[in-house]
Amino acid sequence: MMEKPYKIVNNQRVFNFKKTLRYIQYLGKSKYGDQFKIHRSDVLTFHRLIIYMIHEERQCKKYNIDLNKGILLIGPIGSGKTTIMNLLRVFLFKEDFYHIKSSRDIALEYQREGVEIINRYGKKHTPLFIDDLGVESNSKFYGNECNTIGEILLQRYDLLTNYQIVTHATTNLNADELEELYGKRVRSRLREMFNLISFPTTTKDKRK
């Protein structure tokens, strides 16, 4: 087992960034195999995600990252968005730990169970990570069509404003595409709900 990348000083975790990257690479190889690699072009994205996850307030302020909001991680298909959001949970405190659910799976659950699914994910008072915004299609339950993820995002916005419970998400869509899919109201809420962090548009598909 690799040594953790931080020391406890005055009851606080003090991280070494280079050691943290090596630790993530170790975790990635352990979980996903030897093909896992942190590419040099991704280091800046990793840095922003890590300082958020460990609540490094000074660095977050420097990069205009609001710890009261969630993360919307944007990047091309195959850039590793889901993988990194999964691995970085190891640094979270218990109250910040989020469960991962893909938008496609949520849409499929709605088709089987109906509006209860919107309440299940929209009103649950725990952090949630919705993977791959935009890959789901509008869902139908007994002929009634619903923009399931859009409705859940609106409810998650209420959770944030009323109870400070954050939501995280990934997508390969840009802001205009998200608005086309979910509408202007959801787009305006996204700005208030999320810190936007992006992989470079030139990032190659790491699955190839």
Rank of each mutant, 00 (worst) to 15 (best):
residue 47 H to F: 14
residue 59 Q to Y: 04
residue 56 E to H: 10
residue 69 K to R: 12
residue 109 E to Q: 11
residue 152 I to F: 00
residue 113 E to Q: 14
residue 69 K to I: 11
residue 143 G to M: 12
residue 82 T to W: 13
residue 70 G to E: 00
residue 147 N to S: 06
residue 97 F to E: 08
residue 126 T to D: 12
residue 120 R to S: 07
residue 40 R to D: 15
residue 142 Y to C: 12
residue 162 N to Y: 10
residue 83 T to C: 10
residue 173 L to P: 05
residue 85 M to P: 01
residue 123 K to Q: 15
residue 106 I to M: 04
residue 95 E to L: 09
residue 154 L to C: 11
residue 19 K to R: 08
residue 192 E to A: 13
residue 199 F to V: 06
residue 12 Q to M: 05
residue 194 F to D: 04
residue 107 A to H: 00
residue 179 E to F: 08
residue 15 F to S: 02
residue 169 A to Q: 04
residue 89 R to H: 14
residue 160 L to P: 03
residue 204 K to L: 13
residue 87 L to C: 07
residue 204 K to C: 12
residue 28 G to S: 01
residue 168 H to I: 02
residue 192 E to K: 14
residue 72 L to D: 00
residue 87 L to P: 01
residue 74 I to R: 02
residue 65 I to K: 04
residue 68 N to M: 15
residue 146 C to N: 14
residue 67 L to Y: 04
residue 80 G to N: 09
residue 171 T to L: 04
residue 200 P to R: 07
residue 180 E to Q: 13
residue 98 Y to D: 05
residue 11 N to D: 10
residue 44 L to A: 15
residue 58 R to K: 15
residue 64 N to T: 15
residue 118 I to D: 05
residue 36 F to Y: 10
residue 98 Y to M: 07
residue 50 I to E: 01
residue 126 T to E: 14
residue 122 G to F: 06
residue 47 H to R: 08
residue 71 I to T: 07
residue 120 R to P: 05
residue 152 I to H: 02
residue 174 N to E: 10
